[in-house]
């Protein structure tokens, strides 16, 4: 067995998992508040192009990351306004956000297409831990955002389960009328979490241009936003499962390289396209198995996608 191929693949899978995980964690927060946001891909692109422009202009990576995140949050406010205040159809509004985001990002990013961003994250090495075979390079020699993402997942889990604000959030997603009668402001909570979702999506996009690729118009995200959207369901709205799932999805994107080496001596061949299909098929299977008869058992917020109207009933 060729060990370096698997080491490289695993480490690359972690890096590929970060933007998927960040996007999915953001979407999870939004969905927990009852707002489905199909604008994830658009928000990621807006974050990415902002980070690329700021990185290009200032050469400061943290400034680029911060502005990328803020741009994502600001952009998500459009969806919050349309779906929370105006109670528009969330699916249509989210799709329109992705279309607008893609158009706006490619328009703004036209001038820097393909240009190398002068600043990239450097890996933090945890001394001897990085020497551990297989897991060492994968977990203990990565850039700071990898660790921040892992911490964020645990933080969100704690927030949802153990804090009062998290309880309010979940009540808004499950039964907004009940939350409203308890004096919780449904609208405010939805706004905040849609925009937190936008912030994380903005970070996810920024990470893409600041870690691996240059700004490559739509190719920068290449559908990662949609994968993240699927992942939230795949992980049945659990932050730690999102982390694990992101790694699996990241692995599926990188496994070709390793598989082809492994299988080069045999006649057996897995077409890369089938490997790419796997996460999506798995998501459907998980849903069918978990959600039999009752989607809620899979963890979906009961009021997901439903606008809240106080006057009715």
């Amino acid at each position: 067995m060729n060990e370096w191929a698997i080491v490289i693949t695993l480490a690359a899978s972690v890096v590929a998992a970060v933007p998927i995980a960040l996007g999915a964690l953001g979407e999870l927060l939004s969905e927990k508040a009852g707002v489905l946001n199909l604008g994830l891909e658009g928000m990621m692109l807006i974050g990415a192009v902002t980070a690329a422009q700021v990185g290009d202009g200032t050469g400061n990576i943290w400034l680029a990351l911060a502005f990328g995140g803020l741009a994502g949050a600001a952009f998500s406010a459009i969806h919050a306004f349309l779906s929370v205040t105006l109670r528009a159809n969330q699916i249509v509004s989210g799709l329109a956000l992705t279309i607008f985001g893609t158009g706006l990002a490619t328009f703004i990013g036209k001038s820097i297409e393909g240009e190398p961003i002068p600043t990239k994250f450097t890996a933090v090495r945890f001394g001897a831990l990085a020497e551990i075979p297989l897991v060492g390079p994968m977990l203990f020699e990565q850039d700071p955002i990898v660790y921040a993402t892992i911490i964020a997942a645990f933080g969100i889990r704690f927030y949802l389960r153990n804090t009062r604000a998290g309880l309010s959030l979940r009540s808004v997603g499950e039964s907004p009328a009940t939350a409203d009668s308890m004096g919780i402001s449904v609208g405010a909570i939805r706004y905040v979490h849609v925009m937190l979702g936008g912030l994380l999506a903005g970070f996810a996009g920024s990470y893409l241009v600041l870690s691996r690729v240059n700004w490559a118009q739509e190719g920068t995200t290449a559908g990662i936003g949609w994968i993240a959207l699927a992942l939230v369901v795949f992980a049945s709205w659990g932050p730690l499962r999102v982390l694990l799932g992101a790694f699996l999805f990241g692995f599926a994107r990188n496994a070709n390289f390793w598989l082809q080496r492994e299988l080069s001596d045999t006649d057996f061949e897995v077409p890369p396209e089938f490997l790419s299909m796997l996460p999506y098929l798995l998501t459907i299977i998980v849903l069918v198995v978990l959600g039999s008869r009752d989607w809620r058992r899979a963890g979906a917020p009961a009021s997901l996608g439903v606008p809240f109207v106080r006057d009715e009933r």
Binding site: L82, S93, A96, I99, F100, G103
Partner: peptide, 9 residues
Amino acid sequence: LMLQGAILL
């Protein structure tokens, strides 16, 4: 594309 998105929103 930008215009399409803006009109939609």
